[in-house]
């Protein structure tokens, strides 16, 4: 474990180039450790984003050797090829600087998919009782652990082809809410996620599902939305 890693890192904005750094190879080293080493020891002008370092906040995703990954939980041993790493910002998002992308569009799409819970009761009402074994509750469980890292969104070809496409994460979120029996916006939400900017554009190729570090399956949720919509009558101009 004494050898060095050769690390190519994207520098610049949309226009830019890879710079190469030598980073000492350490045991149990993560890709985030590598980036942090460069920023602390070699070039303090390198910009990147992280917060929790333990796979909870979803802020550290980058493209590592061509694949979108959460860098804080990605071990170098898993991804380095012959001691080489290439680290770039996430695809399908504008680059702010170096490894930092502008995620506003990503989260705006959650809002467009009505990704916010809206209940019909107040604190004075009794708790809602949702049976853990009910179909709806199990569908919610399967999709709820999303950390908003954007790895799925960066990996989805349909997002590249149709910039207006809501994308796997927002649709996965909508699917969990559609299955939340306490939510009061089900019908509006189904209207918001239908059509060619929504679930009907998905080609079910499941790159998102393959790449999700939380092992969620946005593809399954999107298929669920399509099934539900096939049985739902939308307003003529929904």
């Amino acid at each position: 474990m004494t050898s060095n890693l050769k690390v190519k890192v994207w520098r610049g904005r949309e226009e830019g180039d890879f710079a190469t750094y030598e980073v000492p190879r350490l045991e149990s080293q993560t890709v985030l450790d590598v980036v942090t080493y460069i920023q602390r020891r070699v070039d303090p002008s390198l910009s990147y984003r992280y917060a929790c370092r333990v796979g909870m906040c979803g802020s550290c995703a980058m493209t590592v050797n061509g694949v979108a990954r959460w860098t804080c939980r990605t071990h170098v041993s898993k991804v380095a090829k012959d001691g080489r790493l290439e680290i770039a910002p996430l695809s399908n998002l504008p680059v702010v600087k170096d490894l930092v992308t502008d995620m506003s569009e990503f989260f705006d799409k959650w809002a467009r998919a009505l990704g916010r819970f809206k209940g019909g009761t107040s604190r004075k009402d009794d708790f809602a009782r949702v049976k853990p074994e009910s179909l709806e509750r199990r569908a919610v469980d399967a999709g709820i652990e999303c950390i908003g890292c954007g790895a799925c969104y960066a990996s989805c070809d349909v997002v590249s082809w149709r910039p207006e496409y809501l994308g796997p994460a927002a649709l996965n979120r909508a699917w969990t809410l559609v299955n939340d029996v306490r939510d009061t916006q089900r019908q509006e939400r189904l209207g918001a996620v239908a059509g060619d900017a929504g679930c009907h554009a998905c080609h079910t190729l499941a790159t998102c599902t393959e790449r999700c570090p939380k092992q969620l399956a946005p593809t399954a949720g999107i298929a669920g939305l399509k099934r539900l919509l096939a049985r739902t009558k939308l307003e003529a101009e929904a």
Partner: peptide
Amino acid sequence: MNGSVATQARLWLWQRV
């Protein structure tokens, strides 16, 4: 395809069927 979201959803269904 263009048209309303409802049309797009319907086209998807037609394609499936």
